[in-house]
Simulated assay, not measured.
Amino acid sequence: MSTVSLNISNIVKLTDEKFAELADANRDLRLELTAKGELIIMPPTGGETGDRNFEIDGQLWLWNRQTRLGKAFDSSTGFRLPNGATRSPDVSWIRIEKWSTLSAEQRKKFLPICPDFVVELVSETDDLAQVRQKMQEYLENGLLLGWLINPKNRTVEVFRANREMERLEGVLSLSGEDVLPGFVLNLQPIWEN
């Protein structure tokens, strides 16, 4: 099954609460909501993609556990962006200062902020143009650094606030730059899969 987009905006306006109920009732699917009200339905990932995601999650988790500079999230976390979209990046992170501004109630729901850092890992069912648009949407809503990793051709597209996208080929590691100081993602396990 590939990703499906449903235009429901003319039929029903999903509130945050109703969208959360819909996502909760369909836990086998990853659901996102665009700023235009389109419901994006994504199937669970395959084994290779799941393993790659877990590798990235693990490397970020370990760095974050050691530095305690922020909060890291997996692909099941929803972010309610300033433009009204609700997105779930494959891997994401926010600075501890940003986390501290959220109330206890806000932390329990889709987080009403844009992550500072995201990773989107291109899977077999992803449309690359759509994933690039999603990365651009993150930038427009406050993202500082994002990596679009494509294992098929061993490329990474680096998205940075106020800069042009940079395309890297065949690199073995990525630096978290000043957003994730000291974090280096080892890409070798991603490319080997």
Rank of each mutant, 00 (worst) to 15 (best):
N7D: 15
I11T: 13
V171F: 00
E32D: 07
S92I: 12
E192D: 15
D127K: 15
P112E: 02
I8P: 08
R52C: 06
F79E: 04
G37A: 07
G46A: 07
E21V: 08
I113L: 14
R87H: 11
R167Q: 14
S175M: 06
Q106A: 09
D51P: 03
Q188T: 13
M42N: 09
F183K: 04
S5A: 15
G78Y: 04
L139H: 08
V156P: 09
G176Q: 10
S103E: 05
D24V: 06
E192M: 10
N150L: 10
E140H: 02
M1E: 14
L121D: 09
G84M: 13
L187W: 01
T45L: 00
R154G: 01
D126T: 05
T3W: 05
D16R: 11
I11S: 13
V119F: 12
G146A: 07
I8Q: 06
D126Q: 14
A161G: 02
F183V: 03
G176M: 07
W99M: 01
P89E: 05
T34F: 06
E97W: 01
W147N: 13
L168D: 07
S75I: 06
W99P: 00
K108M: 07
S88A: 09
G58E: 02
R68N: 13
R163F: 08
V12H: 14
S92W: 07
I11A: 11
E55R: 12
T86I: 15
L60T: 05
E124I: 14
G47S: 13
V122Y: 03
L172C: 01
L144G: 12
W147T: 10
Q188E: 15
E164I: 03
V12Q: 10
L145F: 00
E169F: 08
L6M: 05
K152Y: 06
I190Y: 11
E124T: 14
T125W: 00
V171P: 05
G182K: 06
G47E: 10
D178I: 01
N26H: 14
D57W: 14
I149L: 07
G146Q: 08
A129F: 03
M1Y: 09
F73R: 14
E120A: 12
G146F: 00
N193E: 08
A23E: 13
L145W: 00
E55M: 09
L185V: 01
T86W: 04
M42P: 01
E120P: 13
V91I: 14
F159D: 12
P43F: 02
F54W: 10
T34K: 02
L81S: 09
R107G: 04
L33H: 03
S123H: 09
V4R: 15
V119S: 10
T86N: 12
W147D: 14
A129E: 12
L168F: 05
L128F: 11
M165H: 02
V156M: 06
S103W: 01
E137W: 06
L143W: 04
E48Q: 10
I113D: 12
D24C: 07
L185T: 00
K108V: 03
I56A: 08
L172E: 15
C114I: 08
L145S: 06
T155K: 02
Q188N: 13
E169G: 04
M42H: 03
G176P: 10
L174S: 08
G84F: 06
Y138E: 10
E157Y: 02
V12C: 11
A104R: 04
T101D: 04
E192F: 03
R107L: 12
I11K: 12
I40W: 00
E177K: 11
K71V: 13
